[in-house]
Design a protein around this nucleic acid. Structure first.
Lengths: 335, 335
DNA sequence: TTTATAAAGTGAAACGTTTACTTTTTATCT
DNA sequence: AGATAAAAAGTAAACGTTTCACTTTATAAA
């Protein structure tokens, strides 16, 4: 049978309250502290988190709800978050909702039943699914996408999507490209809108009139990227470069280009998104825009811990800047 | 304030024990059942898992310890497991130990403190790290690699590594290749040994004498794959095909081949491992051996649930068969 | 030394369930 | 209708902590 606080009390001759105080970092006499430590070691005592959770109404657990577990962008962030949180004694419960808003809603409720102390969510839904958490005054943190519906009520860690797209487009413009296609995600998704905006800004900077035909709307999937690059190629015979705005679509585009035997960068320059591995394994290595995954995870965990400790409960939005990773998929045009 | 079982008792005029019986699936009078259901809805009652856990000593949580969260092979399995487990009311706590045995050991202890009901582990260490769990008689399930140290004491879900390698090597032999290189992982790792064994068996079947120079020992990393393919190329000018035995090394090998301008499959045929996306994005699409991720996750969850329910506590080892995904990276040699 | 004050320690009541055990109700059989 | 057995409901004591209100002990000042 596992030992309890009572056993420690008996062993040391102290009272329950004193042991509890020790466990929770209260001040006590040095020799008592030592006696307790010795007893704990001797009896191999471990706090019962359930008794503790019952009394204190805290689980030292944060729930994470994400659209997809098999997505490197997400798991790399989680990996970092988990490391930081665990260091502070928090565990992480991950729910993968498979990009289904219904499932996402259920996941939030599920985690709430598990009495998580906070919620980190890369949202699919518009925000209603988080209301139950907000009602209970749990700290909630959004990853990757803000939710206008929840503005001011939750914290948020984003990467600078607009800047990322601007940089990528500029890179192509600097290399002399003027007919630059872009494949963006769904128009109702935040990251997608901003990436398109950044692209437009860069074009304007360079005095290039935007051509609607060069903008392909897709859905952030491999399939979608495949289809839209085909459309772009067909409808824009003079297109010399393309910017694909997420990882999955970049994959799709590459597959299509490979199949069609389009040579990169001789016939078409391309800038992709995320995932360094891909950029290296493609032939030639891809120039990509990459988001600061490590930093996102770190800041998210930090923000959550702040809120959990009650130190800083005011919701905050952090926008982290992206970087461009040079490959060999952009051709320098001699004008 | 959240409502409790007491509120439900008051609302319905029944006793605590009856409500508890309802919650745990006991039998009761139809009208009482209805009354309780109505009260639960009216008061928005949710079980307090902490009180329940305290009393019943079960957390309805299973811990998962893995070497790497940013590894598609692993996350796809977890994703499936999580889905199945959640359906049965279990939540999943994931700890990523970053391929560090020390961290792995800590993760197990951490999860034990969180009072998980079972442990699923893709192990780094030799097994000692799981002793504390076994002592407490928790069901333990190993993923991907068995641990001789724990044989007979834990369940295990594996893929048929030997068969996978045999199939891949046969595929190359059938295509007429005879000088077939292989890049394997560390010699002390289970999967690695079996993959090498399978390769040897296939060679023998075809009466091809194994050449030690064609066997490159590496470490399952991108870097390692990169280095070893270089070595193989240099030392075996007559090598016409190579089999790379995990995803990361396949990536590394591809990068090296791309950099060197080695044409696939004209100059070198290659069969890779895992990850379908990669196989499609590479140019030409790669022929790969792929493990049944979905099935592994499913069976692991099923096995764990069986053990948790006490239905079938005898440890079991499941070996699942792999498949080969045809690409265009294997050249048919006309002998 | 005495007194005031701060620090350390204690006792006991919660927290919200589950579960033996006991009592009541209902159904079944003479 | 009365006796009996089975099913349903109820009682109360745990589970292992935390915490509030209090008492004791140590420390410092007079």
């Amino acid at each position: 049978m596992a030992s309890t606080i009572k056993d420690i009390a008996r062993e040391t001759g102290l009272s329950l309250a004193t042991i509890s105080k020790y466990l929770n970092g209260g001040s006590l006499r040095e020799k008592n502290r030592q006696a307790i430590e010795q007893a704990i070691r001797k009896l191999d005592y471990h706090v019962n988190e359930y008794a503790r959770g019952l009394k204190s109404n805290r689980s030292r657990t944060v729930g994470v709800v994400i659209p997809e577990l098999s997505n490197l962008f997400i798991t790399q962030i989680i990996s970092v978050m988990e490391g930081v949180l665990q260091e502070k004694g928090y565990s992480v419960m991950v729910c993968d909702c498979r990009s289904d808003p219904e499932r996402e809603c259920r996941a939030v409720r599920f985690l709430l039943e598990k009495r998580v102390d906070g919620l980190i969510n890369m949202p699919i839904g518009a925000g209603a699914h988080l209301e139950p958490a907000l009602e209970k005054e749990l700290p909630v943190l959004l990853l990757d996408r803000p939710l206008p519906l929840l503005a001011g009520r939750v914290s948020c860690v984003l990467s600078d999507n607009e800047g990322a797209a601007r940089t990528a487009a500029r890179r192509l413009l600097e290399a002399g490209h003027r007919q630059i296609g872009i494949i963006v995600g769904p128009t109702d998704i935040f990251t997608s809108q901003l990436r398109l905006k950044g692209y437009r800004e860069a074009l304007e900077e360079y005095g290039v009139a935007p051509c609607e035909n060069l903008i392909a709307y897709s859905d952030y999937t491999v399939q979608g990227g495949y289809r839209q690059i085909c459309r772009l190629l067909e409808e824009n015979k003079d297109m010399t470069a393309v910017f694909v705005t997420n990882y999955e679509m970049t994959l799709g585009a590459l597959i299509a280009l490979n199949e069609r035997g389009v040579r990169i960068p001789e016939e078409l320059s391309i800038i992709g998104f995320d995932n360094l591995d891909l950029s290296r394994v493609a032939n030639p290595p891809l120039t990509i825009v990459s988001q600061p995954l490590e930093e996102i995870g770190l800041q998210a965990a930090r923000l959550m811990l702040d809120q959990l400790s009650g130190e800083n409960r005011t919701p905050l939005t952090l926008t982290l800047s992206t970087s461009i990773q040079e490959g060999k998929s952009v051709r320098q045009l001699t004008l």
